[in-house]
């Protein structure tokens, strides 16, 4: 066993990258749930985004175009969910599960010709001399652009929800859709927009796995990250900064346990592999002990009757 082989600087840099897919998907789902919609199709939208982003990036040679395509792909798939739950008033849990199954299926269909292909690399952001600073440079200034986009999105979602009228209306719709309707807000329209935002972010999160983390295409490669993102939103009490904390905690422990496995620690691999899940849940459960309830209308169908 050789713990000195673990470089803490590289570990922290790697955990930020490992956390980004979860962070993107969870931030999107947080907005959806704050609007009162429970979309369990995150996994399906992520894998669809992963293949849309991968194939377009390969075809065009541009990872940026790939990410845009991933966002569009995720949003289009989420529109199906929006149609089912907001227009035809189908059950949200069943529709979300169906969306996941559908996304897994359609992604493997779309991805048939892309197995074993190498996607174009997305270059890291060039911060110039900043990345030369010891410790801080490699941790903060040596990542791909999407990682920073993810952080900005968390800050943006937090600020919009807290300080803007649009955010207030969105929370109001999620809190009590009947009262929001009585005040004249367009409940269904606001929810469809939120669902599409969540779909786009989930798609980008998926593409982050297929274009940057792994980078290749394999069927079912998101491997449950969408479900982790869903759980994270709940345990984070629907608060953006806690989503960030949870995602980094999860990413960090995932990286750490991989390093520990590599260093040959005398703990069975199974325990190491489960540790990110256990520790993330324990920490967030302790954090969510304060009184912060779910959005009041979460998961309930809205129909504007009298």
């Amino acid at each position: 066993m050789d713990l000195s082989a673990i470089n803490p600087i590289l570990l922290i840099a790697a955990l930020m990258s490992a956390a980004t897919p979860i962070l993107l998907a969870a931030t999107g789902e947080l907005v959806v749930e704050r609007a009162g919609v429970l979309n369990l199709g995150v996994e399906g939208m992520m894998i669809t985004g992963a293949i849309c982003g991968f194939s377009i990036a390969v075809e065009t040679g541009s990872p940026t175009t790939g990410f845009i395509a991933a966002a569009v792909g995720g949003a289009v798939l989420s529109l199906l969910f929006a149609l089912l739950t907001q227009v035809t008033l189908a059950n949200q849990v069943a529709s979300g599960l169906a969306l996941t199954l559908f996304g897994l299926g359609i992604s493997s269909l779309l991805g048939q010709g892309y197995v074993g292909v190498k996607p174009p690399r997305m270059p890291d952001v060039n911060f110039g001399p900043l990345s030369e600073i010891p410790v801080i440079g490699p941790i903060l200034f040596s990542h791909d652009p999407l990682l920073y986009v993810g952080l900005l999105l968390v800050a943006g979602v937090w600020a919009v929800l807290r300080f803007t009228r649009a955010g207030l209306v969105l929370r109001a719709v999620g809190e009590n859709h009947d009262a929001a309707h009585a005040l004249g807000y367009k409940v269904v329209r606001i929810r469809i927009l939120a669902i599409m935002f969540g779909g786009a972010l989930a798609g980008m999160g998926g593409a982050y796995i297929s274009l940057i983390r792994v980078p290749q295409w394999t069927e079912g490669m998101t491997a449950g990250v969408g479900w982790i993102a869903l759980a994270l939103v709940v345990f984070a009490s629907w608060k953006p900064w806690r989503v960030l904390l949870g995602a980094y905690l999860f990413g960090g422990i995932t990286q750490l346990q991989l390093n520990l496995q590599g260093a040959g620690v005398a703990i069975p691999v199974e325990y190491l592999a489960m540790s990110p899940y256990v520790i993330t849940i324990v920490v967030l459960v302790m954090l969510s002990a304060d009184k912060s309830a779910a959005p009041g209308s979460l998961g309930r169908s809205f129909h504007a009757s009298s």
Binding site: L168, R171, E175, A179, A180, A182, L183
Partner: peptide, 20 residues
């Protein structure tokens, strides 16, 4: 002024008023 109050429980008084 509604009989069944059209208020949002999780929001503050000022936020509720702003929404209307």
């Amino acid at each position: 002024v509604f009989q069944h109050f059209s208020l949002f429980d999780a929001l503050s008084v000022a936020e509720n008023i702003a929404l209307g």
